[in-house]
Simulated assay, not measured.
Amino acid sequence: MAGREPLSVVVITYNNADTLDRCLREVDWVEDLVVLDSGSDDDTVAIARQHGARVETHPFDDYGPQKQRAIDMARHDWVLNLDADEILSPGTREVIERALVAPDVAGYRLPRRERMFWGVQHRHSHRNGHLRLFDRRRGGMNDVEVHAAVEVDGPVRTLREADFVNDGDADIATRVDKINRYSSGMVAHKLRRRQRFTGVRMVLYPPVFFLRQYLFKRYFLSGWAGFVASVTGAFYVFLKYAKLYEARRNARAHDDGQRRE
């Protein structure tokens, strides 16, 4: 679209050959496409180059720093930050292009629909907005473990007509493996925040989370896939606080042992 801000898309990759082609195919209209790879040994890099991406390689240390490196590689101030398993829905290009004509905010949230195992989240269920389109002069990645995200200095607007799909968890086993890794990764962050009432949260928050997802966010519209997604989400919440409780208990036991010595 004439008169809009030029746009860079940044993607970090590691063995994402199964999803990367679909991801990049929906953003082949942008002026600058950056792929920062972590040493893939499948066809990831070849697929990126087929789409005209500028491909660089850097060892992966953590999600936030790796994403920030990709953002720093961008040629333009406005950046669309995508994961290799995220795909813009039809019509989202036009919404983004209109938003980039004389933008008066620091960034835009895009609603995201999740893959729910054998299906995709229903369009009429609640879609969480994620800050993915932003002016990199006014922000970048934060330092939260596992769930690092973009933060900007300035107003943010949600592009409600836009949409993108996270095409990640194709089966329950994959989801459970990810839940185990992510919940372990969040322990250090929560220890630093000194979050209180861990036991109460471990007991009460999982059922509250399930009801919020399944009923109030209308995951029931996705049938049994929505039910399973709500249950596994509640399990993730339980594991976060259970592992935090365990870490604190182990730390106290260690301190008591040292004092007895």
Results as ranks from 00 to 15, higher is better:
3 G>W: 10
4 R>Q: 04
4 R>C: 00
5 E>C: 01
7 L>E: 01
10 V>D: 01
13 T>G: 02
14 Y>M: 07
17 A>N: 14
23 C>Y: 03
24 L>F: 12
25 R>A: 14
29 W>K: 09
37 D>A: 07
41 D>M: 02
42 D>M: 01
44 T>P: 02
44 T>V: 04
50 Q>C: 05
53 A>Y: 11
54 R>D: 07
56 E>M: 08
64 G>S: 03
72 D>C: 00
74 A>H: 01
80 L>A: 01
86 E>N: 07
91 G>D: 03
92 T>Q: 05
92 T>S: 13
101 V>D: 02
104 D>Q: 12
105 V>G: 03
105 V>H: 03
111 P>Q: 07
116 M>T: 10
117 F>T: 08
117 F>Q: 05
119 G>V: 08
123 R>S: 06
124 H>G: 11
125 S>N: 11
129 G>F: 01
133 L>F: 09
140 G>A: 04
150 V>T: 08
151 E>H: 10
154 G>M: 08
154 G>H: 05
156 V>T: 02
158 T>H: 00
159 L>A: 03
160 R>E: 15
162 A>V: 03
163 D>S: 13
165 V>L: 15
167 D>Y: 10
169 D>Q: 13
176 V>S: 04
180 N>W: 09
185 G>M: 06
186 M>Y: 07
189 H>N: 15
191 L>D: 07
192 R>A: 10
196 R>E: 11
199 G>H: 12
200 V>L: 15
211 L>D: 07
211 L>I: 12
212 R>S: 14
212 R>C: 10
213 Q>A: 13
214 Y>G: 02
214 Y>I: 06
224 W>D: 10
225 A>M: 10
228 V>K: 03
234 A>G: 14
237 V>R: 15
239 L>F: 06
240 K>T: 13
240 K>A: 09
241 Y>E: 11
244 L>H: 08
246 E>F: 08
249 R>P: 03
249 R>I: 06
253 A>F: 04
